[in-house]
Simulated scan of single mutants.
Amino acid sequence: MVIPSILLKFMFPSPSSWFVTAMMAVNLLALMDAGYMEIKGKNMRYSKFLNAGVAKKQEMKLSSRNGMLLFYTPAFLVGLASFFVFPLQDLRFVSLASALTIHFFKRVLEVLFLHKYSGSMALESAIIITMSYTSSTATMIYAQFLSRDVSEPMVDLKYIGIGLFVIGTIGNFYHHCLLANLRKKGDKEYKIPRGGLFDLVICPHYMFEILANVGILSISQTLYAFAFTLGTIFYLTGRSYGTRKWYLSKFGDKFPKDVKALIPYVF
């Protein structure tokens, strides 16, 4: 794969692995397609979008809690296992594996102890999302392992990446707490989020998730991490657009029109 010369200053050379190259293309295209579908209103069938703009049909479903637990647990276990499968690696590899493991462990803890649930999700969607998280985590770690014998990028971003990951993770968790506190126990009605950056954008948790992903990219500095992060940004941008559209349709004039989707004052 031809890499633009500017990227060579920031990225490891592309590994000679057909598996990593294929997974890079598959994940990027899948995430970009998912983002486009979100913009078009054809949402991934989980959470509050389960019945938004799609015809009802008979299908197997999971509770939202069990579905989200299924999303994140295998990827967390892959991250944890990488320390035993690839022992005694350098700081960059350990930092990447640690960031991915912490990222999904945080999500598992949020599912178990923080989030509140009001519905179900399609089993088919749960399986697709689980496979995406698990395969992307495994491939990112493997791509990092393959880079161990090649020259480091001219510009070292791993320490900046660690900082961005920490800020993104804390910001994402804080806004998840605000969302969880919107509803009391037993309350299944959706409300317009307030507090934090919710007064500026409807999806600050996605904004900080993107920041955490950029942090992971900066730690890794592999072409696979770049492609996956680019796809994630596209998907979460589409998801944010769809979320704002959903709130507008549900709350109408009660939803503040100056609250953007993802980027304060811009989008």
Rank of each mutant, 00 (worst) to 15 (best):
I102F: 11
H103R: 03
F104H: 14
F104A: 07
F104N: 13
F105K: 03
F105W: 07
K106L: 12
K106V: 14
R107A: 12
R107I: 13
V108D: 14
V108M: 13
L109C: 14
L109A: 14
L109V: 12
E110C: 09
E110R: 00
L112Y: 07
F113V: 08
F113H: 08
L114F: 08
H115R: 11
K116I: 14
K116A: 13
Y117N: 11
Y117E: 13
S118G: 15
S118N: 14
S118P: 05
G119R: 09
G119Y: 09
S120G: 00
S120W: 06
S120F: 10
S120T: 15
S120E: 15
S120V: 14
M121P: 10
A122H: 01
A122N: 07
A122W: 01
L123A: 15
L123H: 02
L123E: 06
L123V: 12
E124Y: 09
E124I: 06
S125T: 15
S125L: 03
S125Q: 13
A126R: 05
A126V: 07
A126Y: 07
I127F: 10
I127L: 15
I128Q: 08
I128T: 09
I129Y: 06
I129W: 05
T130F: 02
T130G: 01
T130E: 04
M131A: 15
M131C: 12
M131D: 00
M131F: 10
Y133K: 00
Y133L: 05
T134N: 02
T134A: 05
S135G: 04
S136E: 09
S136N: 10
T137Q: 05
T137I: 07
T137K: 03
A138Y: 06
A138S: 06
A138T: 02
A138W: 04
A138P: 01
T139P: 00
T139K: 03
